[in-house]
Design a protein around this nucleic acid. Structure first.
Lengths: 213, 213
DNA sequence: AATCTACAGTAACATTTATCACAGAAGGAT
DNA sequence: ATCCTTCTGTGATAAATGTTACTGTAGATT
């Protein structure tokens, strides 16, 4: 256990790892579990050691909008921020691949910030990278049209999984981009005609990862 | 001077105020000055003591997109985040009302985080509130159409200045929402017909601040 | 094999937003 | 007062996106 945590969070000091083992509680969740809801109070910070969690925003009409994914070695920035004052969550977190996490009680946050340099740096870096990621999301919806956003979305996915096949239905993609299935189908078809992708049932193969044209 | 800082940042401890006075440099900037550009390296954290700074994202085509405003008693979250590793800025910061600021050299950031509880809390709270604000921006562009976004925009403005008159041209508003002047003119006209605003040259008067209908 | 269901394709149409073109109005400068 | 510039209003049109409706197909179920 100690070994695995150290492997996943290589920058953590040994003392920090030990402290985490001591105070955190290890938990597993199945794909589909909703870990956090908008408006819910947060009592833990979450460190991901296995699997994938989707962080998204929910519209009043029930529409979803993907913000980013959390993967092993990462932590939920929102939970860190809100934790310090036990604020309400502003986002939804859903498990999309069975996960293992360490739940860190909120009281530890402030304490460790002072006591563990490597925790402090991890937290700051988490804030920074998530903030940047969200800014990129803003860019996309503010300045780009749906076809560009779709390309960006597929690229992000293949980057995340490290493979060129994206295993999602058009409906799922549409939901995450907050558009309709028909629009996604149309645009994908156009991309196929341009030779950028190959379409199969429940699977999109990226032919030209570097389609910046 | 000591007095004024304490008045603007009431939660800062006296020792922190003294430290800021000692290490920060007081500077003034005229309206229109660009304090930070995308891609620029950041070497200071900025505390605003007077005036207003606009934080926005710039598209490749030169389009702007308003993120939020910084006002007295606030600090630039981006500069704090980037500062810790002297990262590049991801946003633009432009003075929109003559400002006075305290520039804090980046080396101080980490040091004060450990030494001054009130600084630590201020930084965390700044992260949190800005993150939330950006999430709200995402909501708006992801889920809402232009007429709703325009209403929200006007509301934010009147909230910020504390008055019901928004002194902006249609062109300026269009720029910040990344749309065109004609669209703004048309939507405003409709709002006027619905009795929500009164239109004058370079000025929009909100008649019904609570237009959630 | 027959049936069922989720997924994908596509045409037709509605709506929203962007763009072009131009006219008039307000206020400052001469 | 006249001229100039900026701001505003509005129609016509184009483009992008959303919606409705329907068809076909692959794979699962029976």
């Amino acid at each position: 256990m100690q070994n695995s945590l150290k492997a996943i969070f290589p920058n953590f000091s040994s003392e920090l790892i030990a402290t985490i083992e001591e105070n955190g509680s290890h938990q597993d969740f199945k794909s589909g579990t909703i870990l956090m809801r908008t408006g819910q109070y947060i009592k833990n910070t979450v460190l991901i050691t296995k699997g994938k969690i989707k962080i998204y925003r929910e519209g009043e009409d029930g529409g979803e909008f993907l913000m980013y994914y959390l993967q092993p070695g990462q932590a939920c920035a929102i939970s860190m921020i809100c934790t310090t004052k036990s604020e309400k969550s502003q986002i939804m977190a859903k498990v999309v691949e069975d996960v293992s996490v360490m739940m860190i009680p909120l009281q530890m946050m402030d304490k460790w910030m002072m006591e563990h340099r490597s925790w402090y740096e991890f937290v700051i870096e988490t804030y920074r990278s998530r903030f940047e990621e969200v800014l990129e999301v803003v860019d996309n919806i503010a300045f780009r049209s749906m076809d560009e956003r779709l390309e960006f979305y597929l690229k992000r996915h293949s980057d995340a999984c490290g493979c060129s096949e994206v295993k999602l239905s058009h409906q799922e993609i549409a939901t995450e981009l907050n558009t309709s299935r028909e629009v996604v189908s149309r645009l994908l078809k156009k991309m196929e005609q341009r030779g950028l992708v190959k379409l199969n049932r429940n699977q999109i193969e990226l032919l030209n990862t570097n389609f910046t044209n």
